Computed example of a mutant assay.
Amino acid sequence: MSEATALTGGTGLRPAIASALDRVAVPGDTATLWRELGRAGVLRALSPSGAGQPPARGGTADPWALEVLLTELDARHPTGTVLSACVQLATALPILAEGLGSDLVRSVYESVLDGEGRVALAATDLGAGGSDLMEATTVAELGEDRVVVNGGKRWITDATTAGHALVLARHRPARHFTSFVWVLVPTDAPGVTVEATSTRLFLGSGVGNLRFDDVTVGRDHVVGRPGRALPSFARHIGTERLASALWARAICRRVLDRTRERLAEHPLHGRTAWDNDAVRARFATCLVELRRMDALCETIRGGPDEQPTAVDGMIAKAAVAESLQYVVGECVQLQGAAAFGDDGIAHLHTEAAAWSIAGGATGAMLAGVADHAADVLKATR
């Protein structure tokens, strides 16, 4: 019996993840990690169907199952590697699964689930503000047997490492949510330029920019129905936002655990830093913030038959972005010089700022929450 069969048959997700991670010797080796997760059946188990079969229309990934993987990854790998897994499993793969209309798309989908391929979610546009996808200028000209793509995407996770990019492009000029289409573009196709982003942050993420100059692919590279791209994106990005919030909670737990250990070891005035009342008060405030995150996440989880809404994802992302930045910032100060060592957390404080930007800026999230104010107030009763 294969590892994938054993896993989907009930052996358990966490042991399979741990076994796969044990076979990755170098932290940040995202290619090997993805391959081992595929061989262990983890990627198939985390697909919307739970077994790697095409999900029902509208099927989304389970953020609570993704939390198991993201927490384990966070304990062993850099932020960029975890980011790569989060974006692909929460958003890119479910979008592909909805659009398995051609043998080509299905082949790429299966390759990614097997851990042999990777796909970059290319949504953020070079010609528009980060969260304003309606103003995207990347264009796909749809012909009877071919598609021509022109434009560019920026700060795309896995841009430099994925074999294909799932490109959000405009196929009609009208500023309307039905004017967009997904096109699966090979990153080595003629006319595609891949440029690594100049940053020392997010090791293992493969973040970069993509440019498309008269990139011509077959019509079978269209994913799903033209006009359905933005609704599809909105449905699945909500899962990614919630999964990233659960991941942020795991980061806070990990950082607080390590900070508590360092404080208990660090001498101060003949005792330890942990014995200092001012230090303990600051640390306790972080614990209160962590419990707030716990309460929010558990409220969103709800009952067994309840499904998180798009607004739940917006609320979680906006709230956790602030909490993560606060907790990590306080822990940097509490750890002092140790936070700036090679294994320190000072760099994490900078990376944590991405939670206020990536996947939708906090301002955009709050605007979306305000649009649903009546529903949110009703839910809190």
Results as ranks from 00 to 15, higher is better:
9 G>N: 03
355 W>R: 13
235 R>Q: 11
107 S>D: 13
178 T>F: 09
228 R>M: 12
195 E>H: 14
134 M>I: 15
176 H>T: 13
294 D>I: 08
286 C>G: 03
230 L>E: 10
191 G>H: 04
204 G>P: 05
163 G>L: 08
140 A>C: 05
325 Q>R: 15
311 V>T: 15
287 L>E: 15
229 A>C: 06
117 G>Y: 06
123 A>N: 09
193 T>E: 14
295 A>P: 01
374 A>H: 12
64 W>H: 06
7 L>F: 02
358 A>F: 15
25 A>F: 08
6 A>H: 06
92 A>G: 10
315 I>A: 10
3 E>R: 13
229 A>N: 08
151 G>W: 08
92 A>C: 08
37 L>V: 03
121 L>K: 01
8 T>M: 13
364 A>G: 06
252 C>H: 03
29 D>Q: 03
202 F>G: 05
303 G>I: 07
128 A>E: 03
24 V>K: 03
361 A>R: 14
375 D>Y: 02
240 E>W: 05
323 S>H: 12
292 R>T: 12
300 I>R: 08
163 G>V: 10
292 R>W: 14
128 A>Y: 05
106 R>L: 09
182 W>V: 05
293 M>H: 09
355 W>D: 11
372 H>M: 09
220 D>G: 10
171 H>R: 02
348 L>N: 06
324 L>Y: 00
8 T>S: 12
107 S>A: 12
65 A>V: 02
290 L>I: 07
4 A>F: 10
15 P>T: 04
115 G>S: 03
17 I>M: 07
174 A>D: 15
138 T>C: 04
23 R>L: 11
7 L>A: 10
327 V>R: 08
7 L>C: 08
47 S>M: 07
261 E>H: 14
166 L>A: 07
83 L>K: 11
68 V>Y: 03
324 L>G: 06
194 V>G: 07
32 T>D: 12
361 A>C: 13
62 D>R: 03
23 R>W: 07
217 V>C: 04
101 G>E: 04
326 Y>W: 13
